[in-house]
Simulated assay, not measured.
Amino acid sequence: MKAQGMCTEKFEAVKQAFEDMFDDPQERGAGLCVQVDGEMVVDLWAGVADQEGKKPWTRDTLANTFCAVKPYVAVAILMLVEAGKLELDAPVARYWPEFAQNGKAKVTLRQVMSHTAGLPALRTPDHNPMMYDWEHMVQVLAAEPLWWEPGTDLGYGTSTFGWILGELIRRVDGRDPCVFIHEEILTPHDLDVHLGVDEQHFHRIARFDSATGRVGDPYSQALRTVLKNEPAHIATYAFTNPGMVPRRTSDPRWWAYRQPAVCAHGTAHGLAGFYSALMAGHFIGRELLSEFTREHSHGMDRIWMRPMRYGLGCMLEQQRDPTASHAMGPSTFGHIGLGGPISFADPERRVSFGFVTTTSGGHMMIDPRPSRLSSLVYAAL
C-alpha cells in the first residue's frame, strides 16, 4: 500500500518498511513520525480509520494510545517539582492526607513514579462500573492496602499511576490533571494529543481492532495465560480491575475519559513532537530531565511478569531483551501502549519516534512493527 505524507531520501527504507506492513490484509491503519533535532524527517500514514474500510486514514486521524501517555503526567509532576510545589522524596500523604490509610503513610512520590510504591493494582470488588468517576476512584485508592513494603519490589501501576499522580496535581495546582497537561504541555507546542477528546473531535478517532495469529513473545504469552486463568493474580487485578482493554475503545465515554496514565488519543506527529520538545529543553530543566530518564528501578516486574527498567514514569531501553528494545541507542526512553502504539526518544541521536495503529498485535511490550521501523531509522542515522 502506498503511504501518504513525507519522507526524506535518507529514510526511504523506513518508508518502504512502513508500506510493507500493509501487505498483511489485517493491517488497517497506522501513522509514523520521526523527528531529528526537532525537524520532521518522516511523517507517514496509510490505511483506513474505520472497521468497514471506507474511511481513509489521514494525518489528523486520532489513534488510541493507551499507556503511551504515562510520561506526560510524569513530566507534569516534574514541572510542579521544579516549581517547588512537590518534592520527589516527600510522602504522597503530605499533599493528600487521606492516602496515608492502611500503611501508605511513608509511600513517596519517587516510589510511585518508579513503580516501586507497592500499589500497582486494586483488589476486589469490581471497580469497572465506577472507573469513570474520579472522586470515587481516588477514594478507593486512598483506602487500598499495600501489596508490599514500598521500595522492596517492582510492579507497574497500570491505572493506579494516573490516579495517584493526577490527584497530586489536583491537590497542589487546583486544575484537573488533564487540563494541566493540555494547558502547560500540549497546547503551547501544538501537540495533537488529547487526554480526553472533545466531542467536536470524535469524528477523527480511528476504530481499534485486533489481529489474529499474532501471539507475541514468550513473556507476553505467559502474561495472557495468567490474565485468562488466574483471576486473583496481582497482574490480573492490575489489567482488569478496572480493565483498560480494546473493547472500551468504541465507547464515547472512553474517548472523553480523563485518566492521565491509561487513556489518550493522538497522532504520530503529536507523540514524536512531545519528545522533541522535551529534549529541546521545554517543560523541565536539564537536571530534572536527567532525573526523569535515569534508571530508578529494575528487575522482574510483578505486573508485566518480565524484566523491566524504569525512570520516573518512563520505560528505559532493554538491549538484552530484543522484544522490549527500542532498537536504538542505550539511553533511549519512552513508553508503549497496549496493542502497538509507542513513542520514545534517543537523546544521543536527538531522535523522537511516534507510531500509532488501530490493529492490535499480541505483544505486551514493544510490537515488532515499530521495532522494525525504529531499527531502520537507527541504521539510516
Results as ranks from 00 to 15, higher is better:
residue 307 P to Q: 08
residue 262 V to D: 10
residue 182 H to P: 06
residue 309 R to V: 02
residue 162 G to F: 08
residue 355 F to P: 06
residue 145 P to S: 07
residue 357 T to P: 05
residue 163 W to I: 15
residue 349 R to E: 06
residue 190 D to T: 01
residue 300 M to Q: 10
residue 71 P to N: 12
residue 160 T to Y: 13
residue 95 Y to T: 12
residue 224 R to I: 12
residue 162 G to V: 07
residue 289 L to C: 03
residue 32 L to G: 05
residue 274 F to P: 15
residue 175 R to F: 06
residue 118 G to Y: 09
residue 48 V to E: 11
residue 348 E to S: 04
residue 90 A to F: 01
residue 112 V to H: 03
residue 103 G to D: 13
residue 286 R to L: 07
residue 213 G to W: 02
residue 91 P to K: 07
residue 357 T to E: 06
residue 36 V to Q: 02
residue 134 W to S: 12
residue 16 Q to W: 06
residue 136 H to C: 15
residue 274 F to D: 14
residue 53 G to E: 09
residue 114 S to N: 07
residue 75 V to I: 15
residue 223 L to D: 15
residue 301 D to A: 03
residue 258 R to D: 11
residue 7 C to Y: 06
residue 159 S to N: 13
residue 269 H to S: 01
residue 100 A to S: 13
residue 145 P to C: 07
residue 283 F to Q: 10
residue 243 G to C: 06
residue 46 A to S: 14
residue 120 P to A: 13
residue 288 L to F: 05
residue 321 D to G: 04
residue 313 G to R: 05
residue 318 Q to V: 02
residue 130 M to T: 15
residue 30 A to G: 10
residue 35 Q to C: 00
residue 30 A to P: 10
residue 129 P to N: 11
residue 277 A to S: 14
residue 113 M to D: 04
residue 361 G to R: 03
residue 221 Q to I: 12
residue 123 R to A: 11
residue 358 T to D: 09
residue 118 G to V: 12
residue 106 K to H: 13
residue 100 A to C: 08
residue 106 K to G: 13
residue 280 A to P: 08
residue 68 A to Y: 05
residue 279 M to A: 12
residue 250 S to Y: 01
residue 270 G to V: 00
residue 119 L to N: 09
residue 62 L to S: 02
residue 369 R to Y: 07
residue 285 G to S: 09
residue 290 S to G: 12
residue 45 W to T: 04
residue 186 L to W: 07
residue 290 S to V: 03
residue 58 T to P: 01
residue 120 P to L: 11
residue 252 P to D: 00
residue 284 I to W: 04
residue 351 V to A: 01
residue 137 M to V: 15
residue 251 D to K: 00
residue 125 P to E: 02
residue 45 W to I: 03
residue 167 E to G: 13
residue 345 A to K: 10
residue 144 E to A: 13
residue 88 L to G: 06
residue 167 E to W: 14
residue 302 R to S: 13
residue 327 A to K: 06
residue 290 S to Y: 07
residue 211 A to R: 05
residue 346 D to S: 06
residue 103 G to K: 10
residue 245 V to L: 12
residue 379 A to M: 01
residue 156 Y to F: 04
residue 144 E to S: 13
residue 68 A to T: 14
residue 166 G to A: 10
residue 364 M to F: 10
residue 103 G to M: 11
residue 302 R to P: 07
residue 181 I to T: 07
residue 45 W to S: 07
residue 270 G to W: 00
residue 364 M to K: 03
residue 277 A to G: 11
residue 81 V to M: 09
residue 198 D to R: 15
residue 30 A to D: 08
residue 258 R to F: 08
residue 30 A to W: 05
residue 212 T to E: 04
residue 90 A to I: 03
residue 313 G to D: 08
residue 127 H to I: 09
residue 98 E to L: 04
residue 126 D to S: 03
residue 369 R to S: 04
residue 346 D to Y: 06
residue 83 A to L: 02
residue 269 H to A: 01
residue 266 G to H: 01
residue 25 P to S: 09
residue 359 T to W: 01
residue 272 A to R: 00
residue 94 R to V: 05
residue 17 A to S: 09
residue 261 A to H: 02
residue 353 F to Y: 01
residue 278 L to Y: 15
residue 172 V to L: 05
residue 195 L to H: 03
residue 20 D to H: 05
residue 295 E to C: 04
residue 104 K to T: 13
residue 107 V to F: 09
residue 372 R to M: 08
residue 274 F to H: 10
residue 102 N to A: 13
